[in-house]
Structures are given as C-alpha cells and as structure tokens.
C-alpha cells in the first residue's frame, strides 16, 4: 500500500508531472506540491539527445536523479525501468536509485532493455516478480516500489489482472497501467484491489473515476518542444529574410 499516495488522497484528480530536465523541475518546485516523475524517456532526450530510454544507463540516470534531488524536497518517482537487466541487476539498481534520492522506484514490465514505444516487448511474470522482490529487498521500508504494466496490447485485461494480483502479493505498493484504451481501463479499474491503481495520463485522455492517481507522460516537454519548433521556424524565417 502506498503511504505516499495516501498523503494525496484528498486530491481526486492527482496528476504527477513527468520531467526530464532541471528547469522544468525548478518550475514545478515553485508551483506544485505533488510527486514528480523523473521519466527515463525524457531524461534520455535531455542527456543523450535520443528518444530510446534503453540507451540511458543506470549510472547516467542515477547521476541525473542525484542532481535533481539536490534541488527539491518534493517526493521523486525514480524510473527503475525494467531493472537494467535481470533480478540481480534490479537489486543493485534499486539500491543505487534509493540512495540517489528516489522516494518511489517505478519498475516496468518491459523486457530489458526497456524501450520508449507504444507496444514494447514485455517480460514473463516470474522475471517481473523476481525484479519486484529484488527491489523490495534492496530498499528500506520508506521507499515505495510501483510497477508499471505496459503490455496490455499483448496480454490483455484478463492477464493483467493476474499480474496485478501476483504483484500485490509480492509487495508492490501501487500498479500503473500504461498504453491503455478507455474500455480496457474501465474493466481493470472495476476489479477489487488492495493497492492503488494508477494510469498514465495525457491531456486528451478520459479520466476514469476509479483510478486513484495519474502519471503524466511528458506534457511539459512536449509543449516546450512545440514552442522550440515555432521559435526555430521564426529563426529560419529571420535568416531567410536577412539573406534577401
């Protein structure tokens, strides 16, 4: 059970923003009092200029997390990705992200290396449970482990419920559903559960009332990129005008 989410229980539409660079965190630090998700996908864009989170190594991400930790006291959701390898790797990765300042470690069920795509390959449940248990054993009581399930397209709502049940039993503090469609999410959210259920969020998504909280996927950075494209167009236009 997530003690962190309990603190925000009065916020019926809790959306936790995703960031991948320091100035966005600085902005949120002044204006928000909610947990911040340090997305590995977004950090990969900032640090490597790439879009595939699988290129970002644990040490590179952990350094980014430590730098961000120094700038805020807000709860930070650290991206454990798919554990950076097998359950043994997950054990040491979880230890590293906890001591680098993560309050929540977000483990996904992708096959290692994790990818930033709509239909990622997922790992089997035994491997995922091993990683969850490893992360649990590696961290102290106050650190939460949330599991993001990304294979709805592959294993469907029935199997996802089996996964949720096993993950709950193995000690997950919350479950997040990613890459969902509204009818699938409604089916999943209607089931009885003992830990919080979250889903990924975009501005256009239908927010099901049964979902306990929402995890942003990068609105701020997408808006910033749009603004940059407009600025670039103006810049190129200026150059063309000057050349005339």
């Amino acid at each position: 059970m997530s003690h962190l989410l309990n603190q925000y229980a009065s916020n019926r539409h809790l959306i936790m923003p995703a960031i991948g660079e320091g100035m966005a965190l600085r902005l949120l630090n002044r204006n928000q009092l909610v947990p911040i998700y340090l997305s590995a996908t977004l950090a990969t864009q900032t640090l490597l200029g790439e879009t595939n989170q699988g290129l970002l190594t644990l040490s590179e991400y952990a350094k980014f997390l430590r730098d961000m930790r120094l700038t805020t006291n807000l709860p930070l959701i650290a991206d454990l990705q798919s554990g950076f390898g097998n359950p043994l790797n997950t054990y040491y990765a979880a230890q590293e992200l906890e001591r680098s300042g993560g309050d929540v470690l977000l483990l996904n069920d992708q096959h290692y290396p994790a990818h930033s795509e709509e239909q990622p390959a997922t790992t089997n449940l035994a491997d995922l449970l091993g990683k969850l248990r490893a992360a649990r054993d590696a961290t102290s009581e106050g650190t939460e482990i949330w599991v993001k399930l990304e294979g709805l397209w592959e294993y469907g709502p029935t199997d996802i419920l089996n996964r949720m049940q096993a993950l709950t039993k193995a000690g997950a503090d919350a479950i997040i559903i990613d890459h969902w469609q509204a009818d699938q999410l409604t089916t999943i959210a209607a089931q009885k559960r003992t830990i919080p259920l979250l889903a990924t969020w975009t501005p256009s998504c239908q927010m099901d009332a049964q979902i306990d909280a929402w995890l942003d996927t990068g609105l701020l950075i997408r808006e910033a990129q749009r603004a940059q494209q407009e600025a670039l167009a103006a810049f190129m236009g200026g150059i063309a005008y000057a050349q005339k």
Binding site: N86, P87, L88, Y91, N124, L125, A126, D127, L129, G130, K131, R133, A134, D137, A166, L167, K169, A170
Partner: peptide
C-alpha cells in the same frame, strides 16, 4: 546467493 533468491522457482509462491 542473492541471485538465487529470485529464480522463477522461488517466485511461484506469489502466483
């Protein structure tokens, strides 16, 4: 020894 804690066999207890 740590690696052996998380084998598929050991994870059956959660299924």
């Amino acid at each position: 020894a740590r690696e052996q804690c998380y084998t598929p066999e050991k994870m059956k207890q959660y299924l």
